Computed example of a mutant assay.
Amino acid sequence: MTLPKEDIIRCEVLQEAAKLFRHYGLNKTTMEDIARAVGKGKSTLYYYYKSKEEIFDAVMKREKDAILCRIQAAVAQQTTASGKLEAFTRMKFREIAQISVLYQVVVREVQNCSEIERGIRRNFDNNEVDLVKNILEFGIETGEFKNMGNADLDLMAFVMISAQRGVEIASILNGKLEEIEGTMDSLVSIMLNGIRNF
């Protein structure tokens, strides 16, 4: 099945823009830079996207959707809640390590925080919290974890994602990405211990 011409152009724009954002960041990349990289005029680019922020939003959404699909697939392969939490954490950080340059751009840009970037971050965080909450509910259903109320489930999922987020940001900003897997193993162990004894 052949993609429509418009979809092919959008895909090319996002691929080239992702390279530019990785290299220069959002603020230093211009629509002209993106148009030149794609081999199109700026007017053609504006036909598909209103601004570089809209392109950045589309690049991040595409990257995050792909990451979330791979994480969900890894989680689905596990048969225990503990295994699912470990798979979630390991796969997430493998994915972050692979796109760490783009992730660093996001971390830097989010410090300046445009509304688009805040929205991207919120949406991804919410998806991760929902996924972890589903894992916790699965653990309760199978008897692996103690029963807890909905408010406690929400809080536990939020705390777990927040703790992971803190470790991932600190590891990236401090240039310690190669140490992150060992740190995450310890964090998962601590979290599972806490859940089982909650």
Rank of each mutant, 00 (worst) to 15 (best):
F145P: 00
A163I: 08
A157Q: 08
M156E: 01
A76Q: 10
G139C: 02
A76G: 04
I116G: 07
I96Y: 12
Q104E: 12
M148P: 11
I161F: 01
R62M: 04
E128Q: 12
N150D: 13
A76D: 12
M156F: 06
V106P: 00
Q98P: 00
G149Q: 07
N123D: 08
R70D: 15
N127G: 04
K84T: 09
T142L: 03
Q72G: 01
S114T: 14
A76Y: 04
I96R: 03
E109L: 02
A73Y: 05
I135H: 08
I135C: 09
F145Q: 01
R62T: 03
I99N: 13
F124S: 00
Q164L: 14
E141L: 07
K84Q: 15
I99M: 15
A81I: 01
E128M: 12
E109C: 04
K61A: 14
F88D: 09
R122T: 07
F145G: 01
S100F: 05
V101F: 06
D152H: 07
N126Q: 14
R90L: 13
R90E: 15
I135L: 10
I99R: 15
C113L: 12
F138R: 02
E117P: 00
K61E: 15
I99V: 15
V101Q: 15
G119R: 11
K92Q: 13
F56I: 00
I161S: 00
L85I: 07
F124L: 03
E128L: 13
D130L: 09
E109F: 05
E137D: 01
Q78W: 02
V75E: 05
I135E: 05
T142N: 04
E95R: 14
Y103R: 05
G139K: 01
V167S: 03
V132D: 05
R94D: 11
F56W: 10
L155Y: 03
A66T: 06
K92N: 11
E144D: 08
A66Q: 09
K64A: 10
T142Q: 09
N112E: 12
E109W: 09
T79H: 11
A58I: 00
F124M: 02
N150K: 13
S82L: 01
V132Y: 09
L85W: 06
I71S: 04
F88S: 09
T80P: 06
I161H: 00
A157M: 10
A81G: 05
E95M: 14
N147V: 06
V101N: 09
A97M: 08
E63A: 11
V159M: 13
R121D: 10
I99P: 07
K146D: 04
N112H: 12
F158W: 04
F145L: 14
R122V: 07
A58C: 04
D57K: 11
G119A: 11
C113G: 06
D154W: 01
K64S: 11
K64T: 06
R90N: 12
N123Y: 02
V132R: 07
A163G: 07
T142A: 04
I120D: 15
I99Y: 15
V129F: 02
R118P: 00
V105S: 14
F138E: 10
A87N: 05
L85A: 07
T89L: 05
R165I: 00
E117H: 08
A76T: 00
D154K: 03
K64F: 15
G143S: 08
C113Y: 08
